[in-house]
Design a protein around this nucleic acid. Structure first.
Lengths: 210, 210
DNA sequence: GACTCTTTTGAGCATTCGCTCAAATTACGA
DNA sequence: TCGTAATTTGAGCGAATGCTCAAAAGAGTC
């Protein structure tokens, strides 16, 4: 090796992720990327091959970051159900503090690149599927610990939760009042915790197996 | 007047809506529109002024269509709560039958045009706000009829419901199994109906006022 | 300092973008 | 049948798009 790349690949990918996350794939031009990464076109293509590839690296990074925060919360909380509820609230609190885009990048991409040829849209949907599977594992764990009735269907609960979360992040885009948003996250968190109180034959017995 | 336009403006707008709905704003080129509307660029600009204007007309149309179906269901059902639940299921059933794009065009647009200058994104968010207000009216009606406890907060319930619906439509994009989707709609419908059984001091007392 | 290998540079490619406008076409009244 | 005004046409505009590549610049070895 005779010359090291002067840029920090990690920070560069972070900036690309931030930009793509906020503007989406199509609305982000190479001029935008050149400015954000402080690199000239040739360097960008030498380092990342194409706009498409760079976008997919940004997607992968986004997924990894989100999973990291989630697993952290899960590890530090006794009850899996409580961890899900806490994470929901934490998610909104973070978005109120950070200048990060409010909506989920995976959901955004899945929608933007729905009928557009290319792998990026399908890739985003694959990541979403993995997130859903992880939620199902957590619900299964909760059931094994007796937090959920035996009749509970982890996959079904996971889909319901994931749909709610994606809806929450879409909602974050149109609403800015912190109080309202925290209330919404709280309502969803309560619905998760209420699953634990069910199985008594009482109300809120949605999402049973079969 | 000496020459009538040969095209049917209503059908033309429908086709434009379908195209924008499915591909989004940026991924839809004028070439695509020319083909879908069977019009040459000059005619399109004479009739609709610009791509942006045409897109906003498509948005308006989408909102009107959705509102129409909703109001119809509401009018034909005794209980407002039941109407909401039925409409939720109806929505998914329709998407399974029709070849229409699965995701809500308003949510899609709100996300795609989040950080992009222009009015279209804000307009989509304004329509979403109107939908939310309508939901709140329906919940208020349910409360007035005694279907909900006096302590219920219609606006809060409306936000929760709307977030769930948007999440549902995002979910529709990644999942295609009809059984799974109907199950999900059913779970959400049940959560709406469960609100009616609350107020007994039992579980599922989320979304109270204050 | 000269040589080598790697990386950056940026002018500029081909293509596509949204859009315009002078000319051709059409349907009506006289 | 003709004149007229509204409408359609499509070649093509200027600008922007994603991207390339020959040349320049830098970091290491001797």
């Amino acid at each position: 090796m005779t010359r090291a790349a002067p840029y920090d690949r990690d920070k560069t990918l972070d900036r690309a992720m931030q930009l793509f996350w906020s503007k989406g794939y199509h609305a982000t031009s190479l001029k935008d990327l050149e400015a954000a990464l402080d690199m000239r076109p040739g360097s960008i293509y030498a380092a990342f091959k194409s706009k498409d590839t760079l976008f997919r690296l940004a997607l992968e990074r986004y997924h990894a970051r989100m999973a990291e925060v989630f697993e952290e919360k899960l590890a530090e909380t006794e009850s899996p159900l409580q961890a899900l509820a806490d994470w929901l609230r934490l998610h909104v609190e973070r978005r109120l503090r950070d200048p990060a885009p409010p909506a989920c990048m995976l959901a955004k991409t899945s929608l933007e690149l729905a009928d557009v040829p290319g792998e990026a849209g399908a890739e985003a949907r694959a990541y979403l599927r993995r997130v859903g599977e992880r939620f199902a594992e957590v619900f299964a764990l909760a059931r094994a610990r007796g937090e959920l009735p035996d009749s509970a269907d982890p996959e079904r609960l996971a889909r319901l939760l994931q749909a709610k979360i994606m809806g929450l992040t879409v909602f974050l885009q149109r609403e800015t009042d912190p109080e309202v948003l925290l209330m919404l996250a709280d309502d969803m968190a309560r619905e998760v915790l209420a699953l634990g109180h069910a199985g008594t034959g009482a109300p809120a017995e949605h999402a049973r197996q079969g």
